[in-house]
């Protein structure tokens, strides 16, 4: 098993450490150079901003490691948000609505999982389809209206901090989930099997891994987490809307790839992904404080994303050129 691990994850580990280091450097520079960046108030905002992307990125990492993708997550989020609004106006209690939304998210994920594993359709195309479909269902359910009067106890908890300090309550949720996902991916046979599937699904199948069933459940989990984030999103902005979280899927995929996960599967680590999420959110936050247009920041996101794959490629090709040259000169002597 350790033999299998080495060649694949060593290079990815390299990029991981680079991205973690880069994130730390950006955080340090920003807290000195950018006014108000290091304040506890800003820390709260930063944490709340990165929470949805970080949560959705956890199952997305698993899915991309197995070589698939789920672009429908933001639409699942929008659908559960719209449902939450509808349920609330129909008088359901919030204690029923929240688990119901998570379950419905899981069902939407199961639909993706069935289409991908049961029918063998390409996940990229399927989830582009369900991206449109689920967002469409959200619009059908709630139209272009909004529902806003959620109980203050819940909206207050989502935006509030632990003991009135500066650590947001919802950050506990992220830490717990990140620990669970991290342990599963990096310290269990199941986690190892995901890398095996991503490296070579056929070989994994022949070594006794239930490839289809594993992928199916990953989509279910992805849907459930997206449903949960739909609830949190609705409570944070105290507004259930059909267009909540639109476009979030691209930000999540960008963060996961930036964190060193290979789009072809089989490579990447969760710490790298979380560093990618923090880096993108911190840059956005810092530049906004510096009054740089948030939209111009798109350039930074895009460049980082391309560079996350391009730079390791360039380094590898330089290294092979060197090696070849050394071999040639050794042969000449």
């Amino acid at each position: 098993m350790s033999e299998l691990r080495r060649p694949g994850s060593r290079r990815a580990l390299g990029w991981d450490s680079i991205i973690v280091a880069l994130t730390v450097v950006v955080l340090i520079i920003a807290s000195f150079a950018v006014e108000n960046f290091g304040t506890s108030r800003n820390f709260t905002f930063l944490a709340l901003d990165l929470l949805p992307i970080a949560l959705v990125a956890l199952p997305m990492t698993f899915i991309i490691v197995t070589g698939e993708i789920d672009l429908s997550v933001a639409s699942t989020l929008g659908f559960t948000s719209a449902l939450m609004g509808t349920f609330w106006t129909h008088g359901l209690s919030i204690e029923t609505i929240i688990p119901l939304c998570v379950v419905i998210g899981a069902i939407l994920g199961a639909v993706n999982g069935f289409l991908v594993t049961g029918l063998g359709l390409p996940s990229l195309a399927v989830t582009i389809g369900t991206l449109a479909f689920y967002r469409g269902l959200a619009l059908v359910v709630l139209g272009d209206g909004a529902v806003a009067d959620f109980p203050a106890a819940y909206t207050g908890w989502v935006t509030g901090n632990i003991g009135g300090g500066s650590i947001p309550n919802v950050l506990i949720l992220l830490v717990i989930l990140a620990l669970i996902f991290g342990v599963i991916l990096h310290a269990t046979p199941f986690g190892r099997s995901l890398y095996a599937i991503g490296a070579n699904a056929q070989a994994a199948h022949f070594s006794g891994i239930r490839v289809a069933r594993t992928k199916f459940w990953l989509y279910v989990v992805s849907g459930a987490v997206a449903g949960l984030v739909g609830v949190l999103w609705t409570l944070r902005y105290s507004s259930a809307r059909a267009d909540n979280g639109a476009g979030l899927e691209l930000a999540v995929v960008a963060a996961v790839l930036l964190g060193g996960v290979s789009i072809f599967g089989g490579k990447g680590t969760l710490p790298g992904v979380l560093a990618g999420v923090v880096l993108l959110a911190a840059l956005q936050n810092a530049l906004r404080l510096e009054d740089v247009s948030g939209q111009a920041l798109n350039i930074v996101t895009g460049v980082l994303l391309v560079a996350s794959v391009l730079l390791p490629n360039i380094i590898t090709s330089i290294r092979t050129t060197w090696q070849r040259r050394r071999l040639r000169s050794a042969a000449a002597h």
């Binding site: 990229l124 691209l250 995929v253 960008a254 790839l257 789009i263 072809f264 939209q295 111009a296 920041l297 798109n298 350039i299 930074v300 996101t301 895009g302 460049v303 994303l305 391309v306 996350s308 794959v309 391009l310 490629n313 360039i314």
Partner: peptide
């Protein structure tokens, strides 16, 4: 650059819009 098209064009989606 041997970067997958999905990654490149997702990146340039952001860059060109930016």
């Amino acid at each position: 650059g041997r970067v997958p098209a999905l990654v490149v064009t997702l990146g340039t989606l952001y860059i060109y819009r930016g």
